[in-house]
């Protein structure tokens, strides 16, 4: 080989170190993953051992609150292994299985639209906006099941105050990560990516609405929407946008992903309402996750049991039309 000969490999062809390392890691993890999945599938490894093998990081310095402390919590394993997160696949076990290698750091969120100063903010700085709190909330999925989850997060209202929206801001739009390299499910055009959600300004300002960064006192697992996700407990779970990358203040109502996917079946408001069925299935009752084979269904409550705090937001509205 001649010294000084110019390489005929262009810089763009060179695989960055991070990528090939990721690949190796991926191959390794995929191997282990397969073994573990196979072993688990045959009942060789119990659920709790599987969970313990995963990396879990404690959050320090959040305050406990009175929210929902009388509720029986859904076990950690169920909260983290039964998820809807189509960017990682459409089955309930896909998110936990396919998000193992997802790295939610570093992370930043763009604050856009009707605000004084549009800017991009690091996750670390978002965490400084307000002290973190624990909120134990019921979560009701539009499919008819529910959980009770101890979230750790900050009130959305605090972030809004910090963002200083203009008088034109009537809605908040949440745009989530659409990265088909890191999210295998996002390669499939099953929904119109990026997954987008939205709230009316007064809904976003309601004290119940939080941006969660953890659960069970630990950093939010990837399959639950790491590193930062929306939690709106009186609405169906799909309103809770995961892995948020943009928060956009708008004058007009945003087009949200599930409304685009099925306008007859999913509405912008998506408030939990036992008297308005999904066109295809009942919303009158729900299956509480974590029960046994003999646990009966639970009656679904109006606004998921948060009517006292939020019913006034919808006074005078026809909830049959604005479902």
């Amino acid at each position: 080989m001649l010294i000084g000969k110019q390489s005929d490999i262009t810089p763009s062809e060179i695989t960055p170190q991070s990528v090939y390392q990721d690949r190796r890691q991926f191959i390794k993890a995929a191997g282990f993953g397969l073994l573990a999945t196979a072993a688990a599938g045959y009942g060789l490894i119990p659920n709790h051992a599987r969970a313990a093998a995963e990396q879990r990081k404690k959050i320090t310095g959040f305050s406990k609150t009175a929210y929902g402390t009388d509720e029986k919590l859904t076990p950690y394993d169920d909260v983290t292994n039964y998820n809807n997160y189509y960017e990682f696949g459409t089955s309930k076990s896909d998110p936990s299985e396919h998000s193992k290698l997802f790295k939610p750091t570093p992370w930043s969120v763009a604050i856009e639209g009707e605000v004084k100063n549009p800017r991009t903010v690091n996750l670390e700085d978002i965490l400084k906006i307000a002290p973190l709190e624990e909120r134990i909330y019921r979560m009701r999925c539009v499919e008819g099941w529910s959980m009770v989850i101890p979230w750790v997060g900050l009130p959305m209202a605090q972030l809004i105050k910090w963002a200083e929206p203009t008088a034109n801001a009537k809605f908040v739009e949440f745009v989530t990560l659409d990265d088909s390299l890191r999210m295998p499910g996002a390669r499939v055009p099953i929904l119109d990516w990026p997954y987008t959600e939205g709230l009316r300004m007064d809904e976003a300002m309601n004290p119940l609405t939080i941006l969660a960064v953890g659960l069970y006192g630990e950093v939010l697992p990837n399959q639950n929407g790491a590193p930062i996700r929306l939690v709106v407990p009186w609405k169906y779970g799909f309103k809770g946008a995961k892995a948020i990358v943009k928060i956009r203040f708008r004058e007009t109502m945003p087009q949200t992903t599930w409304v685009k996917a099925g306008p007859r079946e999913y509405g912008f408001y998506a408030n939990v309402n036992p008297t308005v069925d999904h066109p295809r299935w009942t919303q009158a009752s729900e299956r509480r996750i974590g029960g046994s084979v003999f646990s009966p269904r639970v009656k679904t409550q109006m606004f998921n049991g948060y009517a006292e705090q939020v019913a006034h937001l919808y006074s005078g509205m026809d909830l049959r039309k604005n479902f």
Partner: peptide, 17 residues
């Protein structure tokens, strides 16, 4: 039956069955 006896029907056992 095996999975049921070993409490391994997943988070939503009734849906699973």
């Amino acid at each position: 039956l095996w999975l049921g006896m070993h409490d391994d029907l997943g988070a939503n056992p009734i849906e699973f069955i």
